[in-house]
Computed example of a mutant assay.
Amino acid sequence: MLTSSIANEIAVDTTAIIGFNVLITDRDGIVIGSGDPERVGSFHEASVDVVRTQRAMSHDLAAARMLSGVEPGITLPLVLNGTAVGTVGITGSPDQVERFGRLVRNQTELLLRESVLLSSRLFREKAIEDLLRDIAHYDRETAEPALVLMRAAELGYDLRLSRVAVVVDVEASVEPTRMVRALRRVFDDPQDIIGNTGAGRFIVLSRKREALELDLGVECAVGIGGAASTVATLHDSYQDASTALYLAARLPGSDRVVHIDDLRVQELVASSAPHTRARFVRGMLGSLVDQNDWPVLRQTIIAWCECGFSLVRAAAELRIHRNTLVYRLTKIEELTGHGSRDARFVVKLYLACMADLLS
């Protein structure tokens, strides 16, 4: 609780402020911090009784000479949560330094409490990040779900509650603490689990299932997985959210927030081997890909399928006149030898276009 690094920092800074040497000991009277570095590691005998009685003691020159490692001054107990964790001493004539005693002790105890709280918070954040990594890298064949459930329960989370995984990617330069605070404003359920896994990636296991509008104050991309209520399905949800981000980055015109349920076709296409996709693209698209306006034709085929072969809806989706759409469809029919309402063929053409986009 009272570490040498914290004690030494406090002792050096306080010494510089008040002009008298300040030393801090642990419960056993060993000096662990001092404005005089030569005293660090020495034994301060007066501190033993101060810790035991939790009462301040002052020592003039005569009294100091009778104790090991003690110089004239005052020694006060450092008490946290009712327990003496060490002492703080001020070297000098007791009449001169006694007026600083209570002030220095109170300030030292305040700094120690803040340090303990910070350490506790950082420990919890690290434990949450470790939990999220366990879920992200969960292996059904080798991992034991009960252990993950237990670690989550120790942090106050019940992984049996339904959640969705949300993956947020930002620039690596964005300060993690700032992002976590911003995410907590959006994901405010006590059972929402939020953490940073490094390299600009943040994971949220959210109780929210509705569409999310994220205003985080930074440029970001957000992927959302499916609903889950077990360790294994939470892992799947995380994988789905990550896949949604991967696919969205390769599909033009994708939204900033993407849900895997809107990209299942693309996910299926992307899951096939690259050489298999390449053969499928060559076999289905043929001379279409050699056209100067192939990107426009590809966009037209995708919109035509996704709008249910409706001229009105597809033209509106593409933001073109209906006659322009008819011209494009006629060109596609001539190049492929199939009608634009031949559903079986056009659906295969649609999948080939998706494979081409993901190549």
Rank of each mutant, 00 (worst) to 15 (best):
L212Y: 07
L216S: 05
E175R: 08
L234N: 04
S173Q: 04
R207L: 08
G225P: 03
D215I: 00
D158A: 11
D189L: 06
P176S: 11
D215R: 11
E171K: 12
T230Y: 05
A172W: 06
D192I: 01
L155V: 01
I194M: 00
A199N: 15
R181L: 09
E213V: 08
R209W: 05
I203K: 05
V186N: 07
L205F: 08
R184G: 01
A165I: 13
V218S: 07
Q191L: 06
S173L: 04
N196L: 02
L183E: 06
S206G: 03
L155Y: 00
S237Q: 02
L159F: 07
T233M: 09
R209K: 14
V168Q: 12
E210D: 15
Q191C: 10
A172D: 15
S173T: 10
L205M: 11
R201D: 04
T177Y: 13
E210C: 01
G217Q: 03
L212E: 11
S237F: 05
I193A: 08
T230G: 01
R209N: 09
F187V: 02
D169P: 02
G217S: 12
R160T: 15
Y238I: 13
A199Q: 14
V167F: 03
P190E: 07
V174T: 10
T197K: 01
E175I: 03
H235P: 06
D158M: 04
V166G: 08
T230S: 14
D189A: 11
L155P: 02
E210Y: 12
D189V: 03
E175K: 00
A232K: 06
Y157S: 10
N196E: 10
Y238E: 07
A221E: 12
V164W: 01
L205R: 02
D188P: 04
R201S: 13
P176I: 03
A199F: 14
L155D: 05
E175F: 00
S237G: 09
G223K: 09
A182C: 11
S229F: 13
S206H: 03
E171R: 15
V174R: 00
E210V: 12
S162W: 01
A172M: 11
L212H: 05
T177G: 13
A165V: 10
R209M: 14
V164G: 11
L212Q: 15
A172G: 11
D192T: 03
L159Q: 08
G226T: 13
